[in-house]
Computed example of a mutant assay.
Amino acid sequence: MSTLFISDLHLDDSRPQITTLFEHYLSGDEVRKADALYILGDLVEAWVGDDDDAQLPQRIANATRAVCDAGVPVYFIAGNRDFLMGQAFAERAGFTLLEDGTVHDLYGTPTLLMHGDVLCTDDLAYQAFRRQVRTPEWKAQVLAMPLDARRALAAKARAESRAQNSIKHEDIMDVNAKAVAQAMRHAGVTHLIHGHTHRPAIHHFDLDGHTAERIVLGDWYEQGSVLRVTAKNRQLRAVRE
C-alpha cells in the first residue's frame, strides 16, 4: 500500500489540459488503491470563496469526492493561492482540512507536512503580506465582497505576484535552511514534506546529529508530479496522461 502527495497544481481555466490530467489521475488505480491522498496547497491558481459557482470548483469537488467515496481519505493543507478555502467546500469535496505544520505518521515515521511558503523567510515582502491576509478580519472582509469583485481582486493579485516574482532573486523564493531546521525541531521530526517552491527533490542533511530528509513536491504546470510513500521507500515522479 502507499500514501500519495501532490501540491501546486494551480488548476485554472487557462490550462484545461492540467485539470483533465488531475481528473484522470484521481480516477486511476494508484489513487483508488492508496491508503490516503494528501494535497499540500495551491490546488488552484486562485480561490475566491467556497460560494464560487464556476465550473472548475465543481469539477475539483467531483474528482476528490469520488476518491473519498472509494474509501481513500483525502487531506488538504491550504497554500498561498487557496487559503480562503473553507469547511463548506471541504465537505462538498470530501476532504479533511489540516493545519499547515501537521505531523502525521507515515508507516512508522512521524512526518511534518507543510505547504512550504512559511519556510521562505528570506522573502520579507511576501512574509509581511502573508501575515496580513491570513488574519480572520482580512478573510472576513474579502469574503463579504460580491463574487465578481473577489474575482477581479484575485486577477489583480495574480498579476502583481507575477510582476514581483519576475524581479526577485531565485534564492529569495526558496526555503531558508534555518527556518526548515527550526520547524522540524519544533515538530520533533526528522522528515518533512512540502511544496510551494516548485523545485521537486529529495534532500538529505544533518539535523542536530541525525540524518534528516526534506522532500519537495513538484508543480503541475507542464505535467503532473506525485510523491509515493510506502513503508520501504519514497518515490518522486512525474504524472502524464
Rank of each mutant, 00 (worst) to 15 (best):
I18W: 07
L26Q: 09
E160V: 12
T135R: 03
Q87T: 15
G101V: 12
A125F: 08
T230Q: 02
R134A: 07
P136T: 14
G209Y: 11
P136H: 08
Q127K: 05
Q141Y: 06
L106Q: 07
R150E: 12
L4G: 03
A155V: 09
V229H: 06
I172K: 01
R234Q: 13
E30F: 01
A93I: 09
Y221R: 12
A140C: 01
I193N: 04
V72R: 01
E99M: 08
A78F: 09
L124F: 03
C68G: 02
W47E: 05
K156G: 00
S166A: 15
L84Y: 14
L106F: 15
T197W: 09
E30I: 13
M1R: 11
A54Q: 12
G79S: 06
N233D: 15
G108N: 06
D206R: 01
K156E: 14
A238R: 05
D12G: 02
T19V: 15
V180Y: 05
T230Y: 01
Q132H: 10
R234C: 10
P146L: 06
S2K: 03
A63M: 03
I215G: 01
V118A: 15
Y126R: 07
V133K: 01
G218I: 11
N165P: 00
E91Y: 05
R228G: 00
D219A: 07
V142A: 01
A78R: 13
I18P: 00
A231D: 13
